[in-house]
Write a protein that binds this DNA or RNA. Structure first.
Lengths: 122, 122
DNA sequence: CCCTTACTCAACCGTTCGGTTGAAAAGAGC
DNA sequence: GCTCTTTTCAACCGAACGGTTGAGTAAGGG
């Protein structure tokens, strides 16, 4: 149970029920019971889901008498977007470079004198 | 095993080994053996990881004799970022509105006549 | 003071997950 | 035609997951 933060966030959001809870918490804070209401599972199951979200840092909980209001912590999203954007950018850069190569290797039309000279020939 | 696409992508990236493979594939395509080399696990385990990444749409594979080069498909990232940004924005909007409320409810100083009138009473 | 509400803890259950080993499939090279 | 390389398939294993039920805890409300 000692996974790195990024793994915990991704794993937490890999469950559709938990994603839906996050979606609803983005609109307003809610108690465990309120969160459990729409789903066809026990309150205990929802409580477990919330613990997963909490340990992923996606959610915090306060006290209001017996109620434990849940609050969405949106900053953790940055962790994911940072990772995703990093490699997405890297991949796109690679494709861009590939496009350049393809663009520099034209039709090889022997009747076209502008294509007979190649850039960086070995 | 019939999970929705978003769950599959999140689940695929919840594993640090798979994330590392994606990171390396962002630099260059690689074969199963090349991908397996740095890790202290069997090639079969890596093959399984690749199947998970493939079913998540993160990766495609072609043929080169016995080799099966793996290629990163970066478009799937958009699926995640779209989801994340949607709810991040929603959450931030909510906080912004909360700030507005707090700003419109000033110090409540009884000696200050400008704070005695409240908007939308009752 | 009960009693009800709101929630968590604990134990259990079936399934999935990440890993293993062993065998098979598919090609290239001698 | 063998053999070596590369990869997958299949069976298995322990741990984690998502769910359940049942009991326990904490705090208001009659």
């Amino acid at each position: 149970m000692a996974a790195d933060p990024l793994s915990r966030v991704f794993a937490a959001l890999a469950d559709p029920t938990r994603r839906d809870m996050v979606a609803r918490l983005a609109v307003a804070d809610a108690t465990v019971g309120q969160l459990a209401e729409p789903y066809d599972v026990s309150v205990q199951a929802v409580s477990k889901h919330l613990r997963v979200l909490q340990e992923a840092g996606l959610v915090t909980r306060s006290r209001d008498a017996q109620r434990r209001p849940v609050h969405l912590e949106a900053e953790v999203f940055d962790l994911m977007t940072a990772w995703i954007e990093r490699y997405r950018r890297r991949a796109e850069e690679r494709y861009r470079r590939l496009d350049d190569v393809l663009a520099s290797l034209p039709d090889d039309d022997p009747t076209d004198p502008t294509t007979t000279e190649r850039g960086t020939p070995s």
